[in-house]
Structures are given as C-alpha cells and as structure tokens.
C-alpha cells in the first residue's frame, strides 16, 4: 500500500501489512517551510541512525523511512510504552518546479532535515510596477 499526500495538506495514519501481521508505522512529526530557494522538511525520528534511514524519491513522491534502534539490556520487561513501533514512515508528493535530483538530506540527533531546491525559473522574481 502506498500513501501519498500533498505537501501542505491533510495527513492520515498508515497501517502496513508485514508478515501477515498488521504493523503500524510511526508518523514522524514534521515542520515544512518554503523560502526563496526551496522547501525544507524537518522530521523528528528519534532512535534512527544514518544507516537505518532512507530518503528516496520515486517519480514525484518523497518517501522518508527509518528504523529506530535502541539499546536494551538482555531480559528486559516492558513496564510502560508510549512508542510501540520502531518504524517511521511518511511520504509527500512533490511538485514539478522542484529539483528532485538536487535533494539534500541531513540527520542529526534524530532530526532529519531535507532540502528540496526550486528550479531557477521557479524562484520568486520581483515584478516592477511601472508608472506612466
């Protein structure tokens, strides 16, 4: 099951079947903003290290996926759990004025930052208003 969403539109949770068992992926909270150069996405994905993170573009869909790994001693019993999955997954549909091939991603302390630059011709230009 693939799920898409427009940048700046509503979201829904996602349930993926894995090994016949329904597996709920965590929906990482994101901040998305746009400046003159492009769109910036920041996502909280605590527990994910660089080697367990995937940021990929398939056609016009930006997919962010990560697998959290936390260090646990042998023989641990859970007493309480807010977080009940280790998989993060979220996707966004990109629009054509963005340069998909120039996407940059950075991960620091569990915060993923993705920068999607705009095509040169899509950058805002100031229109001079002429007076007669």
């Amino acid at each position: 099951m693939t799920e898409k969403q427009e940048v700046a539109s509503a979201k829904t949770g996602e349930v993926r079947p894995a090994d016949g068992q329904p597996e709920t992926a965590l929906y990482p909270p994101v901040d998305i903003y746009e400046d003159a150069d492009g769109i910036h996405v920041q996502a909280d994905m605590p527990g994910v290290s660089r080697d367990r993170l995937t940021v990929q573009v398939d056609r016009d869909t930006l997919l962010i996926e990560g697998e959290a790994k936390i260090q646990m001693p042998e023989g641990m019993n859970a007493l309480y759990a807010d977080v009940r999955s280790t998989r993060y997954r979220r996707s966004f549909t990109l629009s054509s004025e963005l340069r998909f091939e120039a996407i940059e991603a950075n991960l620091k302390d569990g915060v993923l930052s993705v920068r999607i630059p705009k095509r040169e011709e899509a950058k805002p230009r100031r229109i001079e208003v002429k007076t007669q």
Partner: peptide, 19 residues
C-alpha cells in the same frame, strides 16, 4: 514519548526526544 523497561538489575527509561 517515553518507554520504560525493567531488568533484574535496574530500570531503563527511554525518552524519544530528537534534537
């Protein structure tokens, strides 16, 4: 969000707080 797990030696508390 937090998870808490216990072992015979102690208790481990995980706070999922990125950045």
């Amino acid at each position: 969000p937090i998870n808490v797990g216990a072992t015979a030696d102690g208790v481990d508390i995980y706070l999922f707080a990125a950045g």
